[in-house]
């Protein structure tokens, strides 16, 4: 088979389909986050305070986990995470450019989690990735909302809660959904799925 620079189905290079899948999921995620999750999050955080972020953040980020599980290639997490927040911003989320910072740091966290497992499509990878994403989120919260001025105890609680919730809720949710998509016949990527959960 001839080599093809433009469209090689490689381990690293994104195919056109990869790009479109990233785009579509980021689009769905971005808009849902701007209009649905965003509204819920304000409600939850309004009622519970900043720690409430741990309850809503998993629902912001599980989209990215789905994409990485469907397109397990380096950089996909960061790209999707950023794209989703850009869409969120263009769609008019009132969180505005704050979400760009979140998108970047959370994307890095997600990327690292999958990198550790070398982009294997496994539940542990999804959970670790979610947990690191939670840390990224906590860092953003701390510096943007000025929580660094707080006592260390609540701050540590925030980090732990976010890591645990993002890892367990976001990671598992993302994995289960990606798995469902996979079962419906979309193979995607170059690696096989681990045996059933």
């Amino acid at each position: 088979m001839a080599d093809n620079a433009g469209v090689a189905v490689g381990k690293y290079r994104y195919t056109t389909l990869d790009i479109l899948i990233i785009a579509v999921v980021a689009a769905i995620g971005g808009v849902v986050n701007a209009y649905v999750t965003g509204a819920w999050a304000k409600f939850i955080e309004g009622a519970v305070g900043p720690l409430g972020a741990a309850l809503d953040n998993p629902f912001y980020i599980f989209w990215v986990i789905i994409v990485v599980l469907l397109v397990p290639k380096p950089g996909v997490a960061i790209v999707t995470s950023l794209l989703a927040v850009i869409v969120e911003m263009v769609a008019g989320s009132e969180d505005g450019s704050i979400v760009l910072v979140f998108g970047l740091l959370q994307g890095i966290g997600l990327e690292l989690g999958f990198l550790v497992f070398r982009y294997a499509r496994t539940l542990p990878a999804a959970i670790l990735s979610g947990a690191l994403c939670g840390i990224g989120c906590a860092i953003c919260l701390t510096f943007i909302f000025g929580f660094d001025k707080l006592d260390p105890l609540p701050l540590v609680a925030l980090f732990v809660a976010l890591a645990v919730c993002d890892g367990l809720i976001g990671g598992i949710l993302g994995y289960v959904i990606a798995r469902g998509v996979n079962r419906a016949g979309f193979a995607g990527g170059t690696q096989t799925w681990e045996r059933a959960v």
């Binding site: 088979m1 001839a2 093809n4 469209v7 189905v9 195919t15 389909l17």
Partner: peptide, 9 residues
């Protein structure tokens, strides 16, 4: 046009 097999394997 070569989409089969280049793209679809």
């Amino acid at each position: 046009n070569g989409i089969v097999p280049k793209q679809l394997g």
